[in-house]
Amino acid sequence: MATADDFKLIRDIHSTGGRRQVFGSREQKPFEDLVDLGWLKRSSVDSRATHYQITERGTSAAL
């Protein structure tokens, strides 16, 4: 179930172009929650960072 923080984060991601790069596993937790909701997808993972991209469902949630 989505929380107020989830909606705040997806709106922030949407307003800044729909993509986010995250460093460190602790910082990934809120983004992984949005992946579980179907609002974000992991577009790539490298040794230092994970890249996320907003989905259509995420765009709808952000509006």
Rank of each mutant, 00 (worst) to 15 (best):
R20S: 05
W39H: 00
R48P: 09
T3M: 05
R57E: 14
E56H: 09
L34T: 00
M1I: 13
K29P: 04
R19N: 11
L34E: 00
L37C: 03
I54G: 01
E56K: 10
D6L: 10
L9Q: 03
M1T: 13
I13S: 00
G24P: 05
E56I: 09
T3C: 06
E32N: 09
K8T: 09
A61V: 10
P30S: 07
G38S: 03
E32I: 07
V22D: 02
F31R: 00
T55M: 02
A49E: 10
Q53Y: 11
K41N: 10
V22R: 02
S15D: 12
T16W: 06
A61R: 03
I10P: 00
R11A: 09
R26W: 13
D5Y: 09
P30W: 05
G18Q: 02
D5N: 11
G18I: 02
S43G: 10
I13K: 00
G38K: 05
A61H: 04
I10F: 02
H51V: 15
L34F: 01
L9P: 00
A2H: 05
P30Q: 08
L40Y: 00
L40S: 00
T16I: 06
G18M: 02
L40Q: 00
L34I: 02
E27N: 15
T16F: 06
H14V: 07
A4R: 10
R19L: 11
G24F: 09
H14Q: 09
A62F: 03
G18E: 02
A49R: 08
L37F: 06
K29L: 06
A2Q: 04
S15N: 14
E56G: 08
W39D: 01
K29G: 09
S43L: 15
R19V: 13
F23E: 12
D46G: 10
I54Y: 00
E56Q: 10
D6F: 06
R11Y: 10
A2S: 05
E56W: 10
D46H: 08
A61G: 02
V45W: 12
T3W: 04
L63M: 11
A2Y: 06
G17W: 04
D12M: 08
F7A: 03
H14N: 06
G24L: 09
Q21C: 13
